[in-house]
Design a protein around this nucleic acid. Structure first.
Lengths: 264, 264
DNA sequence: CCAGAAGTTCCACGATGCGGAAAATCGGCA
DNA sequence: TGCCGATTTTCCGCATCGTGGAACTTCTGG
């Protein structure tokens, strides 16, 4: 019946768990459209949306039109769609509230360790950076908030996936692949799973320049069952010595527990 | 048939223009729920939502459940609902993109004038602060981003409403009222409309301590037909002298034009 | 441990959203 | 400037999908 069902209320384009059923279809589709628009850097035309989503133009138009009316999408002069103002007005509030809780903890990390502290979230198959406090040194990482990375080459990714079952991790790796970013990147599923065993045993995860040459990063998961969060500290390898790691890990773990308790 | 229709796909709680028809009902309702949750500071229970929205518990539950499944709402241990992670992951991207465009302009304002610069947006009947760059002085305003204020007592509000027809402004004032915040607050509709005439004539709006005693603020609207934006500069009255205003207005106007061109 | 309330699931009805096709509009090319 | 193809928007009949009452389950407080 359908030829290319992509946002059709089925599994969203690339999601960890196929949450297929039970939901209100128009909602699933509409949010699919929003995410599709968000994924593009430029504004998107109706026909582009139609092809990438697999929805009929008329349905798409009705959904998009409703979203425009509500202010969550806006239609510019070229008739293309971009994310609307209501959307980040909505998110701004929750973002502010989240930051109010999170930033003090990250600042504490920076105060104790001196290097850039991050909060990351597992979203589907990707890891998204949610908040950040820059370190005290002038030479430091700059990962923009909102950026998404693959789990296999980051400390936060390892920390987050350590709580998943091996089968789930394998499935995820099959979907995302293990792209090589540096000579140190783990590119074999079994290698990565072995690493996760280490993470579980030690209680923290490390990225030894696997995403960016010369950058070392330590991360621990934030306990809590509703959100999959992890905090990390990262900096240039020379400064991120083994001694510093030894000091940093307990601080990270304590912070994670405190943060988890406050968020739950 | 219905007794208390509030989010029922009719006019959203307090919106400028009654955009009643043509939309997909479940979407309108679902976003109404999201905004309702966002409006509360604490997480909201299903029954609270039911009473404030006027929707039946079962409908509400289905909508909320779908939103939870999609990650735009999250259900905490107490079974109450809060805004979900996907929401600000969605907005984060667009917010970052917006800030990339906007902040340089605001920083330019601060560099030229020295006082705190704001970007505000007309959202329904309210004015929401979208971005801010703090001024150079240690004593300065602190309006949090995301905060909403009434248009009648702010420079940005006046600048934004100056482009509306008198009838629309009267209707808005009737809905929101003109609450008194300080002895200088304009509390009479006609008084406010006369002020708008001034704003149109001069090309900029001023708030003479009408929202907060001792705070003076100048604002101009950002040209552009899709978004209703305004930029402003505000500071303590002693520093915001008439001379400074004379200098600031042309800078504001030039910045507004530049910003408008870049956003359109 | 029980009672009341809040949350969740079920189900049949029909309003509501669906998508094909037609109409309107835009954009490009000569 | 005027025509043609592509894209967007509107229309409309059909069946699907969402709706809300009622029943059931799970919390919460006494």
């Amino acid at each position: 019946m359908n030829d290319v069902p992509t946002v059709t209320g089925d599994t969203p384009p690339e999601d960890g768990r196929g949450a297929r059923s039970g939901g209100v279809q128009s909602l699933e589709r509409a949010f699919g459209v929003l995410e599709l628009v968000a994924a593009h850097d430029r504004a998107v035309s109706l026909s582009e949306l139609a092809t990438t989503s697999g929805l009929s133009p008329s349905t798409l138009h009705r959904l998009a039109h409703t979203l425009v009316t509500l202010g969550y999408l806006r239609q510019e002069a070229s008739r293309r769609y971009a994310l609307g103002p209501r959307l980040f007005l909505l998110a701004e509030g929750s973002s502010a509230r989240l930051n109010a809780v999170v930033l003090p903890h990250l600042m504490h990390l920076v105060a104790e360790i001196g290097e850039t502290a991050n909060l990351a979230m597992l979203d589907g198959d990707q890891v998204a950076y949610v908040a950040q406090v820059p370190g005290r040194h002038s030479m430091r990482m700059f990962t923009e908030v909102g950026r998404r990375v693959q789990p296999h080459c980051t400390a936060v990714g390892k920390a987050l996936l350590a709580s998943s079952a091996d089968a789930d991790v394998r499935a995820l790796l099959r979907r995302t692949g293990l792209a090589r970013h540096t000579p140190h990147t783990l590119t074999e599923p079994e290698e990565f799973l072995a690493e996760l065993v280490q993470v579980r045993r030690r209680g923290y995860a490390v990225d030894e320049g696997e995403q960016e040459v010369g950058v070392r990063c330590v991360a621990v998961a934030v306990p809590g069952n509703s959100l999959r969060l992890a905090i990390s500290v990262s900096g240039p390898a020379p400064r991120m010595s083994d001694a510093l790691l030894t000091d940093a890990v307990p601080v990270l773990q304590a912070t994670a527990v405190a943060l988890g308790a406050e968020l739950e």
